[in-house]
């Protein structure tokens, strides 16, 4: 799948041709530089490695500087690999938003916002106890029973409990591209995408 690395800018809404108000996410996508071309001969599979957002040479180690020097660019903050696409890309080529066009569907991957240590209601969508009365006390958001008693005498592995929530890699499938603004490298995608504003995203066609 062909794709680009992008940055989430924010959300807004636009009116579609039918006059419907459509919620959209604005993503700054690319321009990305081809930093490595992987081939079957050399790496065992075909892929493209792209880099996005320049980083100071001072802030990179020598291995990174050397790697990006091969492509003739500055070191990059974010690097991602995309499986080989049709189209012949050379080391150092620039890919921009014109890869997409209006009316394509894309998958967007990002890291969701971290929520910290959360209970079972927020983390797994448990209903909690819906009554504050009828003998309940301090149990409105409690998980309830963890299992049976003397058999099995233990809690099964994988039982959904409270814990660290968010901050996971999340991929949202089939989002429609509503608009492209090539002059500012922006795309508008229908719906929401994971992560905070300014978070890195991988957009695949």
């Amino acid at each position: 799948m062909a794709g680009l690395i992008g940055k989430k800018i924010g959300m807004t809404s636009i009116f579609s041709a039918e006059g419907k108000n459509v919620p959209c996410t604005v993503i700054e996508a690319g321009p990305c530089v081809v930093t490595q071309v992987k081939t079957v001969d050399k790496d065992g599979y075909e892929a493209l490695q792209l880099g996005f957002v320049d980083k100071k040479e001072k802030r990179s180690n020598k291995a990174q500087v050397g790697h990006f020097k091969k492509a003739g660019t500055l070191p990059k903050h974010k690097v991602a690999e995309f499986s080989k696409t049709n189209g012949d890309y050379q080391l150092g080529d620039e890919i921009n938003v014109e890869l997409f066009n209006d009316d394509t569907w894309v998958d967007v991957t990002g890291v969701s916002k971290g929520k910290g240590f959360q209970g079972v209601v927020k983390r797994h969508g448990f209903a909690g106890v819906n009554d504050a009365t009828h003998g309940q006390h301090n149990r409105m958001r409690a998980p309830g029973s963890l299992g049976a008693s003397s058999y099995p005498s233990r809690v099964f592995k994988g039982m959904r409990m409270a814990g660290r929530t968010g901050g996971d890699q999340v991929k949202v499938l089939s989002l429609r591209v509503m608009k492209i603004i090539p002059e500012s490298n922006l795309i508008l995608v229908k719906g929401s995408v994971p992560g905070p504003k300014g978070g890195y995203l991988i957009i695949e066609k």
């Binding site: 800018i9 924010g10 807004t12 636009i14 604005v26 700054e28 608009k179 603004i181 500012s184 922006l186 508008l188």
Partner: peptide, 12 residues
């Protein structure tokens, strides 16, 4: 540059 404004401007 405020990129949200760029989007708004593209719709005049």
């Amino acid at each position: 540059m405020d990129l949200m404004k760029v989007v708004a401007d593209s719709y005049n």
